[in-house]
Design a protein around this nucleic acid. Structure first.
Lengths: 243, 243
DNA sequence: ACAAAAGTGTTACCGCTACACCCATGA
DNA sequence: TCATGGGTGTAGCGGTAACACTTTTGT
């Protein structure tokens, strides 16, 4: 890069690749994790399923802003939790031209994330993470890494709450940890409701609301909320989240 | 992007930003962590210290390959552990033009990583992480995030060994964990040699070599090695690394 | 009344924490 | 012999793991 005294501009002799953002939107339905996929309306990989995303624009403030903009085009939900987790850059990811993709994962409440009516170019659909279809590009690998990062993150930050409504039940929260950490069938310590609940409550940043959920043919579960203030406090003291 | 039937090529109407890789090379000297910095020979930020890195080229197989190539230009050390940890993309990171930077951290044995005699354009030097100079661009933030990621990674992967020779002493390993996790002075559990050693050995993938280090005016410490096979085994069973 | 799911308490054991003295080495 | 740093064991405590019965609710 050289400064041109005439034009008062930097002139770049360097190669400039195309850059996209792709998002692994993870939605929890109370039972399991789902990923939002878009059916491609155009070549390449026409009609195959792919992650939502798109090319970065000069007016995007950052990759985060770009990814957020792309998601806002799919839904009217605001306030989505999103985190960059890896950048994919190998040579032949895209058959058209070389593309570098900055990948994010987003955590949403599946039933609150209303996908806008798909235009003819694209159709959006939720898939359980255990039953993904064949995917375009290297999106399979992107999803796998996203889930791996999620698994690691949940040990240090209480990000699971982004997958639930403000008020949630203990069994729901437990299901999230089981779905993310995916313990073997015979793992009792993580599968045991009582131990999970005790540990969660001892952390001290989950508050009972006093309310309950009714409408089920069985005992009504209590509703809890995440107490951000108490969490920040606990974090300072240096608490663990390990499961 | 459109497919041109004439030229049989994809034509890209999308914006293409410049892309660089920067590496936070962390070197351990037996006592503390150090970061390798380059003094810039050119504007902007001339004479300031910056992370080693450079523009990605079309012939680079991936960002990893680019970062690796850049480091190989600085040293003749091979087999460097490197990991991508974040991509920085905000608008005004570089005063010349918009640049997206894929950032890596690398872990090396400081005294084995021989920095090549700097040409006139650049001078390379190690700085303790606790005494960094003023840095060019947003490199201060990049280093801070690198250290944060390192702190998180070390809970799940035994990456500390990349900062040491194949054979190392227990106090050296202990110093790494203390340097990375940076516990408060009064934290006994992490600061206690005996507890650290017991936990490390119980994990089962550190082997005594039977050798010792001589030449110090005190008792000679034992040498250990990391047993990759045993580690992979332990990982399958589902062991923890928590400290 | 019945089925389905949630609420709740106790015990045993293991692992973490805290703590101090002896040993090897080179100067 | 002295200074420095490394090697090593143990006891108490706390938290995790394992385990079952009762309660609520709608049908």
């Amino acid at each position: 890069m050289k400064y041109n005294e005439q034009t008062k501009q930097w002139e770049s002799p360097y190669w400039h690749p195309a850059v996209t953002t792709d998002s692994v939107v993870v939605g929890f339905d109370g039972e399991q994790l789902n990923v939002l996929l878009i059916q491609r309306g155009l070549e390449p990989y026409k009609n195959m399923w792919a992650l939502p995303g798109g090319f970065m624009r000069p007016e995007d403030e950052s990759a985060e802003a770009c990814a957020y903009r792309e998601l806002r085009e799919e839904t009217d939900v605001d306030d989505i939790y999103m985190e960059e987790f890896h950048t994919f850059s190998s040579r032949d990811r895209d058959p058209r031209e070389r593309v570098i993709t900055i990948a994010f994962f987003a955590l949403v409440v599946k039933d609150k994330y209303r996908v806008k009516g798909g235009d003819d170019a694209s159709k959006a659909m939720w898939f359980p993470v255990k039953e993904l279809p064949e995917l375009a590009f290297d999106h399979k690998a992107i999803i796998e890494l996203a889930l791996e990062r999620l698994r690691q993150r949940i040990h240090f930050e209480p990000i699971g709450f982004h997958l639930l409504d403000k008020e949630f039940t203990m069994p729901q929260l437990h299901n999230i940890y089981k779905a993310i950490l995916d313990p073997p069938e015979d793992d009792i310590k993580l599968s045991d409701r009582r131990n999970f609940q005790k540990k969660m409550l001892k952390l001290g940043y989950i508050r009972e609301t006093g309310k309950k959920v009714t409408g089920n043919p069985h005992r009504s579960p209590k509703l809890y909320t995440f107490d951000e203030g108490a969490y920040q406090q606990a974090k300072k003291i240096g608490m663990r989240l390990e499961f």
